[in-house]
Design a protein around this nucleic acid. Structure first.
Lengths: 109, 109
DNA sequence: AAACTTGATCGTATTATCACGATTAATTAG
DNA sequence: CTAATTAATCGTGATAATACGATCAAGTTT
């Protein structure tokens, strides 16, 4: 079906999965890293910085915007993107909680 | 094309993205959480625990196995799965490093 | 107003993902 | 040996994701 059965999972599981999915492409990792590096806002330099077509970058930016990890402000003819700090912190919390599940108990294999 | 251009990104970016992609489905989150909860190995109870067909669960397990997050040991007619602690720790390191990029500098929007 | 710049969106081709029934392979039980 | 159990794999259908050229909309320049 290509369609995940989200209804049989709880909200936390779906949220973690959605966030992870948004991070599941190297271009989006590169975009986020660049937004952190250039700590002022960055516009379409991303197209040059990363070697993908403008339409493709725009598509990746849209995904990141949809999940809320970045915000875009129109500035004249260009658009300025930046990390949404609040959302980033929330994501960090959710993912960290998941990643920090206790390994000590797993005593097998 | 449906095919990510991994060659234009560095190894770290590709690794983070691959791991995130593996976590990008609620069923796989649920599987991992259950493997942590049942700290002994779990076999095909996952099919009952999660409400998906056996073939589907097996497919998700395969993905998790391929990226190395879980290991499977054959035990008679059933298969026992568990978290691969080393790989999990590595993942935790990589993702934490990424998630902990400094937010203080982003002063825009 | 006309030309230019910028970035979103459309259309489309290709490939991947998700899900499941059916089948197969391997082990165990009788 | 036969039947049953378990899980992987095959085949398939439906949908999503990736990528890009082309076009469109909006703002800037001249």
């Amino acid at each position: 079906m290509g369609l995940a059965k989200t209804e049989i999972f709880n909200q936390q599981q779906n949220e973690i999965a959605s966030l992870a999915k948004a991070l599941g492409h190297p271009a989006r990792i590169a975009i986020l890293q660049h937004l952190f590096k250039i700590n002022a806002c960055v516009c379409g330099d991303l197209v040059e910085e990363i070697g993908l077509a403008q339409a493709t970058i725009s598509q990746h930016l849209k995904e990141l915007k949809q999940i809320g990890l970045i915000k875009g402000n129109v500035e004249g003819t260009s658009v300025c993107y930046c990390i949404d700090k609040e959302k980033w912190s929330k994501m960090k919390g959710l993912l960290s909680e998941f990643l920090n599940l206790d390994l000590r108990n797993s005593t097998c294999c």
